[in-house]
Design a protein around this nucleic acid. Structure first.
Length: 871
DNA sequence: CGATCCCGCCACATT
DNA sequence: AATGTGGCGGGATCG
């Protein structure tokens, strides 16, 4: 074992020296057999008998540790010694001097020299990044371990991470196959997709800053973990079997960790957040210790990823202090975009051209899915879950628990996020994250490729798409969508009355519920317009859209959300397309609504096959007040999932009251990647929209917003109206109120959705102004926070978020009841949704449960206004 | 003193 | 039972 190297060094621990050096120099001494048995020993020791040896002995004597080890090993193995040569003098000298030791670096082999990162670099150096496809290089763990002079255990650490990225795959017992980075791009893409499904929302929140929560996590997790892992079937190496084991958490963790980066807009992930997110497993309690352990593992993973040139360490400074974090510097894949300028990474982007190209956002999904392979275990969990969560359908299924967990988790996160978000503090230190605009601007995530051009086109298309199927608009992108069209009822379409718009570029759809008045405009999309807004984009509205339903109004400008992005982006980049749009209808226009909505009021039900909604987690926008946040947070923690949320109730009630609701859709701008977003009109009659009618739970969602993919994932927001005919969710069930999951059918990129029951984001209202009054430009959502607020939209964004705005719109809920987050617990729920800012005063939020009036929420109002101007 | 993370015990899986 | 794997966390270092 220790070859004497260490001995030479300091007597104490300090230096164990690394064999490494030696090994290199030697070149690996072959002699030793790769055989496992010997741990360290790679190189034979120098001769025992040599003077050096003696020294060593002495040294070892000095340090107990050493001694012990040697003992273990047998001090000498004469046998091997053959290599004396290698050991060389250096050692000897070193020993002698002790301090300086050898010439090389042996100098202080401090801990750093033994770091996993360094070790990994050495490991990687042995193999070509892009090996010829034909040959495969096999790696013998023992051999490598010995060559590198480390214990095998360390090699496992490296290999496991590499395996998670498919740079290597295990072929047999001590054997791994080296694949290189050829598939890295694909792998990352897959991870990103998966990540969006799983973490999109969360990350959105957290993004840059987060506060630390205590380590208490609320989550209650129960059942299994979902692990998402992907196993990719790789070409040759499919691992099928491999997985059986308990999962290797390191691998899974590694993938998840990478996912977080890929999903994050800022590309910066702090360790604590990652740890929190990754601790999914069962724990309810959060143990601090567990957290600590997780962090430790993350360091291990981070070291390897750093060696791969995929991430680098940075610090995020928050008010509280600086936190360690890592920034993704690897390729950003798909979209073509690679990475940031910064490019430290030595490694070139691996992305294969082809893949990238491919990357049209939509497509990705499909492919992605296919790719994933999950473990059995896996399958059961997550993805499914999403699916499962049917909202309404089963109240209490086991799953629910999960949901709870999920929800709770989300909540926590949200809370956290909020806090952080609130300010965007960006640290200077952090390089990356440009705040809003800049960032947005960046093409980074935006996918340029698609878009703009499309835009127009789309519109044209729209009609087609539109309604016909219901949702289908762009079917292409989403599988799910197509299905959507039917309703259970048989109603054919989604929304009969609705109109909807698509925005091509981003893939957005708008649906308008019934609108009352007649005119709706759809809006448009141009970003520019939007940006400007105020004017309202209406003008811009594409005719086509209009077509659909006769009347439409346009609301667009108002929608804060839209604006933001687009604006931002435009400015920055034009290309990106981010259209936003919104529509708001006021009333249902026709019967449909009325009819449909009867009891519920309105809810439109949407069924998406794949979708599942979760309600529940509220997102917390950043509330104005932080305080509230915390409270909320706590609240959440405490709260039971089951607990009916006031909001919910409200909603229902409200819904009842109001027949009409807002309807909107939002689609995400980003072209890219992922996801698509939609908004559904709130009002729809129940059932109105159903996407695949699968048995699955359908949800009815009044409105949903989905974030675009690009990054993020944004949560969807649903209007309170949720009740769906279909699934009645009892209040009791937590789910209903609490959360629904929405999952896209498989793929949808952005899975996460938040639906706020109460949602809320109302922008501030200026009644008069209605929509955009003032600030047209702002993007409410994410761009500038300020603006956003102004707008009333809530934005979650933190800087991190920036990209995405998260907004919750409150749709329907009329009474928005302002809740004060703080004040009331019950309220809280809502609170999240609301943005204080938006309303104008945070305080405003009050819970209002029953009380709420029906007044439309401000948001609505706005919308209304814009559209009809009821007010 | 907090951030890192090396080290290797030890349990579980595989052979 | 031996060996392969790898979870895990104490505690040493680093900064």
């Amino acid at each position: 074992e220790n070859r004497f190297d260490r001995s030479r060094m300091a007597p104490k621990t300090p230096i164990k020296n690394e064999p490494v050096d030696l090994s290199k120099q030697k070149g690996c001494t072959p002699e030793r057999n790769p055989i496992t048995p010997v741990k360290l020993v790679d190189r034979p020791q120098p001769d025992p008998w040599t003077p050096t040896a003696n020294l060593k002995m002495l040294v070892s004597a000095a340090s107990p540790d050493m001694r012990d080890r040697e003992k273990k090993k047998e001090l000498f193995r004469p046998i091997e010694n053959s290599e004396q040569s290698d050991t060389p003098d250096a050692l000897q000298y070193g020993m002698v001097d002790d301090s300086t030791a050898d010439e090389f670096e042996k100098q202080r082999p401090s801990r750093k020299q033994k770091s996993l990162g360094l070790l990994c670099q050495k490991f990687l150096a042995r193999y070509p990044s892009y090996p010829l496809s034909t040959e495969k290089t096999t790696i013998s763990l023992d051999e490598v371990a010995s060559i590198l002079g480390v214990e095998r255990r360390r090699i496992y650490d490296i290999v496991n991470v590499l395996e998670s990225l498919h740079l290597v795959s295990r072929v047999a017992k001590n054997q791994y196959c080296w694949h290189g980075r050829h598939n890295l791009g694909q792998t990352l893409k897959t991870l990103q997709e998966a990540g969006e499904l799983q973490y999109g929302e969360l990350m959105t929140f957290f993004q840059h800053k987060e506060q630390d929560l205590e380590y208490k996590f609320v989550e209650r997790k129960k059942d299994s973990q979902d692990r998402s892992l992907l196993d990719f079937p790789e070409p040759d190496c499919t691992s099928a079997s491999a997985n059986s084991r308990k999962d290797k958490s390191l691998r899974i963790m590694s993938q998840k960790f990478v996912m977080l980066f890929l999903v994050s807009k800022t590309k910066i992930v702090t360790l604590d957040i990652a740890a929190k997110i990754l601790i999914e497993e069962t724990q309810e309690t959060v143990d601090y210790s567990k957290f600590k352990t997780k962090v430790r593992r993350l360091y291990d993973i981070a070291n390897v990823l750093t060696s791969l040139g995929l991430i680098k360490k940075v610090h995020v400074t928050e008010e509280r202090g600086r936190k360690p974090a890592f920034k993704w510097i690897g390729p950003v894949e798909f979209p073509s975009k690679t990475d940031e300028p910064r490019g430290h990474s030595p490694t070139p982007d691996p992305l294969p051209g082809t893949q990238r190209g491919a990357c049209a956002p939509y497509q990705i999904y499909t492919t992605g899915k296919q790719k994933f392979t999950r473990h059995a275990s896996f399958s059961s969990t997550q993805p499914c879950e999403g699916a499962r969560r049917k909202v309404s359908s089963e109240p209490s299924s086991p799953r629910q628990e999960r949901q709870d967990d999920y929800c709770s988790k989300m909540i926590n996160l949200a809370a956290v996020c909020r806090q952080k978000i609130e300010e965007d503090t960006r640290d200077p230190s952090i390089t990356s994250p440009p705040p809003l605009h800049p960032v947005l601007g960046d093409s980074d995530f935006c996918v340029n490729p698609l878009p703009q051009a499309v835009f127009p086109v789309v519109q044209a298309d729209v009609p087609n798409l539109s309604l016909a199927n219901g949702v289908s608009g762009p079917q292409a992108p989403h599988p799910s969508i197509p299905a959507a069209s039917k309703t259970e009822n048989g109603k054919p379409t989604l929304l009969p009355n609705q109109s909807f718009l698509c925005f091509p570029s981003s893939s957005l759809f708008m649906l308008c519920g019934s609108l009352q008045e007649n005119n709706l405009c759809e809006t448009l999309p141009t970003p520019e317009d939007m940006g400007n807004r105020s004017g309202k984009a209406q003008a811009t509205v594409p005719p086509a859209a209009c077509q659909k339903r006769s009347s439409h109004k346009c609301a667009s400008p108002s929608a804060p959300v839209d604006d933001e992005e687009p604006a931002a982006k435009k400015q920055t980049m034009e290309q990106s397309d981010v259209p936003l749009s919104l529509v708001v209808p006021k009333k249902p226009y026709e019967s449909p609504v009325a009819e449909t909505t009867p009891g519920n009021g309105c809810t439109s039900a949407v069924h998406l096959e794949a979708f599942h909604l979760d309600f529940a987690s509220p997102v917390a926008p950043e509330a104005a007040d932080k305080e509230s946040t915390q409270e909320q947070e706590k609240w959440f923690q405490n709260k039971d999932p089951d607990e009916p949320s006031p909001g919910k109730e409200n909603i229902s009630q409200e819904n009842a009251h109001q027949p009409f609701l807002p309807q909107y859709l939002y689609v995400q701008p980003t072209a890219g990647l992922s996801s698509f977003n939609f908004l559904f009109p709130a009002n729809q009659a129940p059932g109105a929209v159903s996407l695949a009618a699968s048995q699955l739970p359908s949800l009815s969602v009044p409105c949903v917003v989905v974030p675009s993919a690009a990054l993020a994932s944004f949560p969807l927001i649903c209007s309170p109206t949720i009740t769906s005919p279909l699934s009645p969710v009892p209040d009791g069930s937590f789910s209903a109120a609490a959360s629904m999951n929405f999952s896209m059918s498989g793929l949808a990129s952005t899975t996460p959705v938040f639906i706020g029951t109460t949602a809320v984001v109302t922008p501030k209202v200026s009644p008069a102004s209605a929509v955009d009054p003032q600030q047209p430009a702002h993007p409410a959502l994410h761009l500038s926070p300020v603006l956003a607020r102004a707008c009333g939209a809530v934005k979650l964004d933190s800087p991190a978020c920036m990209g995405h705005p998260v907004t919750l719109l409150k749709l329907q809920q009329p009474s928005s009841t302002p809740l004060t987050p703080k004040s009331i617990r019950p309220a809280r729920h809502e609170a999240f949704f609301k943005t204080p800012g938006s309303l104008g005063n945070p305080v405003a939020w009050k819970k209002n449960e029953g009380s709420q009036t029906r007044n439309a929420s401000s948001v609505q109002r706005r919308l209304e206004i814009s559209s009809t101007s009821p007010d």
